[in-house]
Design a protein around this nucleic acid. Structure first.
Lengths: 126, 126, 126, 126
DNA sequence: GTGGTCTAGACCACC
DNA sequence: GTGGTCTAGACCACT
């Protein structure tokens, strides 16, 4: 499902969070789909279950997954009303990265094309 | 010139690097412009000169500034042939953020407009 | 493991970087092999741990080693896609040295033989 | 004739030495050709004549140029018996660079071709 | 015990 | 005065 990169300096739970989040926002994991249990996942990655627990808890707080006691954890539905704070923060990150790519000489058209591709995929899958 | 956030968990030199980089790529600091000396900057921020030294050294190896012994440190000219690895890494970050913003429901047009604004400013300043 | 030359005008951390790099590219140190800890190495060379830290950090950003917090530092796997800038710079150095050796009258065949020996060893060890 | 790079961390006289040496070994400057006087050269580069003096003196010691009092400085003839020490040092540098390029995955044939090109040019010019 | 950050203070080369 | 190196010693996060 995903692989760990020990040469990455971030804590393991952050890596796991990020990779799961990517699978969710990219549409690879669908609404209400079941994800592995904490213990299962920990066994698969050969790490401490607490690390998975922490990642799942954070993702639940951020609204990306939900857990049902004795059932397991599932992908949350796409939020209808988006979190304004979260969007603002991401948009700041977005403009920052665009500034840097512009500085490094990447063509504007390439970025616009990337955006169209991403939005196109999403529409198609909905 | 810039302020430090001691509640931020990232190292001080990373914060300094990031903020200087933003000033450079946004065009606020021009080619060959002198930036404060190591000691001067350290005094302004009330931190140890070694911390500034480290930030400057890193920015120099990344190609954003250059230092001349006994002269000072200066903004580097915009790279003609950009580092392919660096661009690739930033572009990955870009698509990742766009995926997330798309998931959260931000309109495609907003992002495209942001890009046009940023590229427009740069053209205007050249 | 290696010795320092205090009569050399270059900084200690540069000497350490260079010698470790030679051990890596010559194949004396294998992928994922553990190298001495920062403190251990510093004690062996009778220098300050910060100097080793600096050498390790530089080698990590250059992609020759990787460090894992609370685990140690290790030889990085051989890069699949090599850094174009780095190769270009080394190749320039290469042609420059060849020009000089040619000027000094060294036979072309000697250089070609050296190259075949080096590439032969690598193939054999893989 | 040559340009200075203030972002280079080496002393100016070393930069000048290196660039002149390259012009000599590459054949761009021929035997007994006159090179600019110390004061002329210093004026051209807008630097202190002492810096040029130092570069010329070093190049003369190493046998690349010779000076005639009241006449000027000239390119020395190609040495018949080469300095064994110098060749050995360059060859060490050579094998070191080749090892690194091999490690980074550059094809053996590319290096051999480079050598053939360089030696070919020299033969043609003699 | 590991890598990593930061401080304080010294010294060097260069100009 | 500048950038740059090195030391000594403290503290942190993570396992």
């Amino acid at each position: 499902m995903l692989t760990l990169d020990y040469s990455d300096h971030r804590p393991l739970y952050e890596q796991i969070k990020e990779k799961l989040k990517k699978l969710i926002v990219s549409g690879a994991l669908k609404e209400n789909e079941k994800i592995p249990s904490v213990r299962e996942f920990a066994a698969m990655l050969a790490i401490n279950p607490n690390t998975i627990q922490r990642a799942y808890k954070d993702l639940e707080t951020e609204g990306y997954i939900y857990s049902v006691r004795a059932k397991g954890s599932f992908i949350a539905p796409i939020p209808a009303a988006s979190n304004a704070k979260q969007v603002a923060s991401l948009r700041e990150q977005f403009t920052s990265v665009v500034h840097e790519l512009c500085y490094l000489g990447l063509a504007e058209s390439e970025l616009v094309r990337d955006i169209q591709t991403i939005y196109g995929e999403r529409k198609a899958s909905v």
